[in-house]
Simulated assay, not measured.
Amino acid sequence: MNYVYILRCNDDSLYTGWTNNLEKRLKTHLAGKGAKYTKARLPVELVYYEEFEDKIEAMKREYKIKQLSRKEKLKLVHIEDIDK
């Protein structure tokens, strides 16, 4: 399986990525080795993910999510924006 995921960082920002091993990728992020962006914003929390059979489909979905506004992403993951 391939996954698109959204992490909520400790500064309340959102990070979107894709992986073929969600559990391993989350552990990597939490260890400060996942991405330059999340490394500086630990700890992170997995707040959303979608599963895909195909890597290309997951990557396409990641791109589409990254094009969304913060408000749209919060709606997708069912989180209320504290900055309303």
Rank of each mutant, 00 (worst) to 15 (best):
M1C: 06
M1A: 13
M1G: 14
N2D: 01
N2R: 04
Y3I: 08
V4R: 10
V4P: 09
Y5H: 07
Y5S: 07
Y5W: 06
I6H: 00
I6Y: 01
N10E: 12
D11P: 03
D12K: 09
D12W: 02
D12V: 02
S13Q: 14
S13H: 12
L14W: 01
L14V: 00
G17W: 01
G17Y: 02
G17C: 03
W18S: 12
W18Y: 07
W18N: 07
W18I: 00
W18F: 07
T19H: 04
N20D: 14
N21Q: 14
E23M: 07
K24Q: 10
R25D: 01
K27I: 00
T28E: 15
H29P: 08
A31F: 02
G32F: 00
G32N: 02
K33S: 11
K33G: 05
K33D: 09
G34M: 11
A35T: 08
A35F: 06
A35K: 06
A35R: 07
K36W: 05
K36H: 12
Y37T: 13
Y37W: 11
Y37G: 00
A40C: 03
A40H: 11
R41N: 10
L42I: 06
L42P: 08
L42H: 04
P43I: 02
P43A: 02
V44M: 01
L46C: 01
L46A: 01
V47S: 02
V47M: 04
Y48V: 09
Y48N: 05
Y49T: 09
Y49C: 11
E51Q: 12
E51P: 03
F52N: 06
F52E: 04
F52G: 05
E53R: 10
E53N: 10
D54I: 15
I56F: 12
E57N: 15
A58V: 05
M59V: 13
M59E: 15
M59D: 08
K60V: 10
K60G: 04
R61S: 07
E62Y: 04
E62G: 06
K64L: 08
I65A: 03
Q67F: 03
Q67T: 14
Q67H: 10
L68S: 06
S69R: 10
S69K: 14
S69C: 07
S69D: 08
R70C: 05
R70P: 02
K71S: 14
K71Y: 10
K71F: 09
K73Y: 05
K75T: 07
K75Q: 10
K75A: 13
V77N: 01
H78P: 00
H78N: 14
H78D: 13
I79V: 12
D81T: 09
I82Y: 06
I82E: 11
D83Y: 15
K84E: 13
K84Q: 08
K84L: 12
